[in-house]
Simulated scan of single mutants.
Amino acid sequence: MNQKHDKHALRVGIAGLGTVGKTVAKAIDAGIDGLELAAVSVRDASAAAAWLADLNCTPRIVSFDEMPLYADVVIECAPSQLLPKIAEPMLRAGKTVVPLSVGALLDHMDLVEIAREHGGQISVPTGALLGLDAVTAAAKGTIRSARMVTRKPVTGLLGAPFLEENNIRIDDIKTPMRIFAGTPRDAAKGFPANLNVSVALSLAGIGPDDTELEIWADPALTRNTHTIEIDSDSARFTMTIENIPSANPKTGLITALSVVALLEKMRAPLRVGT
């Protein structure tokens, strides 16, 4: 049975019920003032229906094209290649899209123009990163350099297209190994499930072609670690975050919590942060 609709609530849709999607769904279902879990889009409707049945209020299961009829904002938690199919109907309807596959945006920047034309918005969450407020502020002046170094446990990097294409084996490494040095634009293609954070950093700062990025596989690590170094005319800062992996080793636990925090801000009477 579908939940009772509060006409004043922000109706949230979730596209994809993987680790992040389920965490966000549970958080909204547990109760966030001003938010209502209204709809989900999934590949396997029967499996989703069985999982959703345990929630207090069951959202509709709809297609990507139907999502704008039931949701004001959709959280994209799906494989990156599906981002355009999820985002475009919402943006054309003047709605909001919160993408987790931020790297896919670089190949589909036409979505930004669609949002502009129809009054929609793409709202990129901080995700597994930190300090995007400071980077965004610094970018209002001049950022001279932006650098990010990511270090991950081996299990969080296995299967990345870049490793497969370049025949780089990390399964049995015993010491830290640098597996990539380049830009977020290149990393978005080579590590689509891992480096959305670097693209988010680049979009907040000086762009995906001028931001420097290194990726290390480290067999001694148990946490996904990102260090940002920014040098600008207003501030110089270095920040490091160590994220505990979720059930999906490629994604940190804080990613889903970041989405929940962003949703809360949309209807909060007090907003903290830029």
Rank of each mutant, 00 (worst) to 15 (best):
I228R: 05
A45K: 15
N243E: 11
W216G: 06
D172G: 05
V97I: 12
M148K: 04
Q3V: 14
V259G: 05
I28V: 09
L111P: 04
G205D: 03
R43P: 02
D6N: 10
R223M: 12
G13H: 00
T19R: 07
K26E: 13
N243R: 03
L163R: 08
M266S: 15
N56W: 00
P269L: 06
T222A: 14
D65C: 03
V12F: 02
M177P: 00
V260D: 14
N243S: 13
P192R: 02
L203F: 04
L262E: 12
V98N: 03
R151L: 06
H8A: 13
D72P: 02
V260K: 05
S46D: 15
V197S: 09
S41M: 05
L69W: 06
G34R: 01
A93N: 11
L17S: 04
K265V: 00
A134P: 03
R60K: 14
A204E: 01
A47V: 06
D44Q: 08
C77W: 01
I143T: 08
Q3G: 15
R267G: 10
G141E: 04
F64H: 11
V197K: 02
A139T: 09
K174M: 11
N166V: 04
S246P: 01
P79S: 07
E66C: 13
R223E: 13
I14S: 01
A87D: 03
E66N: 13
G252P: 07
V102E: 07
L213H: 07
T175N: 05
V154C: 08
E113F: 01
S246C: 11
K7D: 12
D6T: 02
G252W: 11
A115R: 05
T225F: 01
K4A: 14
L105Q: 08
I122Q: 00
A134K: 14
D107M: 04
E66M: 11
I168D: 07
A261E: 13
T142G: 00
M177V: 12
A128K: 02
A204K: 00
S80H: 10
K250N: 14
I114A: 09
I241N: 11
G141A: 10
W216S: 09
L253K: 12
G156Y: 03
A47N: 13
I114K: 09
S258Y: 06
A53Q: 15
G182I: 00
G18H: 04
A115L: 04
T251I: 13
L100M: 11
